[in-house]
């Protein structure tokens, strides 16, 4: 697989060279199974293709159970990785078990300790709320435990039951109760209040950080900055077009080896671009600038103006300093509000 990924970088060299690379993100799965040497070789291939002088953030997603002090130390000292995203998800063992995680709560705490002991300063951790047992106090203790560490950035994800997942299956079979929406909403509100009291700013629906410690890479997704995704299932975006690599690992490998196309592309129409602007923009604290709607055609502008009026009336968005932002009640219904803006 690593060979294939290196090969993809080579194949797309001319495309990559068009850009100034600002951030690198190793994610989607468990890159922490890679050895430090393997990480090093990946970054070298990239560095041989395009200048990495302007890079300000290199994040690596890690599972708590893949980490050890030596590994972390070597990662920090010998590679460009300077930011760790750790999938804590919970400190509560029954929850971790329910989500089929390999680590337990104690190991989650140890892995955070190791990360900070190794000297990483930029650390983000994620937690999941809205789990089927609906317990507010467990959620609060999760948050409290996490902020005992000097994490600069926190992602809190509400559980969504996706089709064709193990969780959906057990819920359908009646083995676990469907999470209660009101409880999930209360947990979401509590997250906002609790983290605010600890100095974290909610700069996107699911993302909180200490002053100025935004995730540069993720923030760029929401600002329509182009990106290149390498590897199976990775998505790329150049401002006009999305490209997505085949998701299946063996199909990806065989396509790369046989030199045939391993991706599909999708040209974004005007309404696609408009919809994505709404979708990504409204979720952030910066909101959307109403005057940016002027670049779209009349039909879209009418839809936009109508939705703005209705959403302000309903109390879901508010205008401040020329930007339209979700209110507290708007955030909890973000998808509902966003789709009301959509032009289809």
């Amino acid at each position: 697989m690593l060979q294939a990924i290196n090969r993809e970088i080579e194949l797309r060299a001319s495309e990559i060279q068009k850009y100034t690379i600002e951030t690198i993100y190793f994610g989607g799965g468990t890159p922490s199974v890679l050895t430090v040497d393997e990480m090093h070789s990946l970054i070298s291939t990239l560095g041989g293709t395009v200048s990495l002088d302007q890079v300000v953030e290199v994040t690596m997603e890690c599972n708590p159970d893949d980490l050890n002090p030596d590994y972390l130390q070597a990662l920090l000292n010998e590679t460009m990785v300077d930011r760790i995203s750790i999938g804590i998800q919970s400190f509560h063992d029954p929850h971790l078990k329910m989500m089929n995680r390999a680590h337990n709560g104690a190991e989650a705490g140890q892995s955070l300790e190791q990360i900070f002991n190794a000297g990483f300063e930029k650390v983000t951790a994620d937690l999941i709320f809205g789990l089927p047992d609906n317990d507010l106090s467990i959620w609060q203790s999760n948050l409290a435990r996490l902020v005992e560490f000097p994490v600069s950035h926190i992602s809190c994800y509400g559980l969504t039951i996706e089709p064709n997942t193990a969780l959906k299956h057990v819920i359908d079979k009646g083995l676990i109760d469907m999470p209660d929406e009101s409880a999930a909403r209360d947990q979401f509100y509590m997250t906002q209040e609790f983290l605010a009291s600890k100095g974290y700013e909610q700069y996107e629906i699911s993302n909180f950080c200490l002053p100025g410690q935004y995730a540069v890479h993720n923030t760029n997704y929401w600002k329509q900055v182009p990106y290149i995704g390498i590897g199976p299932s990775a998505h790329s975006y150049n401002g006009r077009e999305r490209r997505f690599n085949v998701a299946n690992n063996s199909q990806y490998l065989s396509a790369i080896n046989r030199g045939i196309d391993f991706w599909e592309t999708e040209l974004l129409s005007e309404s696609d671009r408009y919809n994505e602007w709404i979708l990504t923009g409204l979720r952030t604290k910066w909101g959307i600038d109403g005057s940016d709607a002027q670049q779209y055609s009349l039909n879209i502008r009418e839809e936009f103006d109508d939705a703005v009026k209705k959403s302000i009336h309903a109390g879901w968005i508010e205008e401040s300093d020329g930007a339209l932002c979700l209110t507290k009640s708007g955030k909890v219904l973000a998808d509902y509000v966003i789709s009301s803006f959509f032009y289809v």
């Binding site: 809205g130 994800y157 509400g158 559980l159 969504t160 929406e181 009101s182 999930a184 909403r185 979401f188 996107e204 629906i205 699911s206 993720n218 997704y221 929401w222 990106y227 995704g229 299932s233 990775a234 998505h235 975006y237 999305r242 997505f244 999708e266 696609d272 919809n275 994505e276 979708l279 990504t280 979720r283 955030k331 909890v332 219904l333 973000a334 998808d335 509902y336 966003i338 789709s339 959509f342």
Partner: peptide, 20 residues
């Protein structure tokens, strides 16, 4: 009471856009 997607990065964006 609650209708909000958790993750909205990279590939999530077009998936979520199509859903909405």
């Amino acid at each position: 009471r609650k209708d909000v997607t958790a993750k909205c990065y990279g590939g999530d964006i077009s998936r979520k856009r199509k859903l909405l």
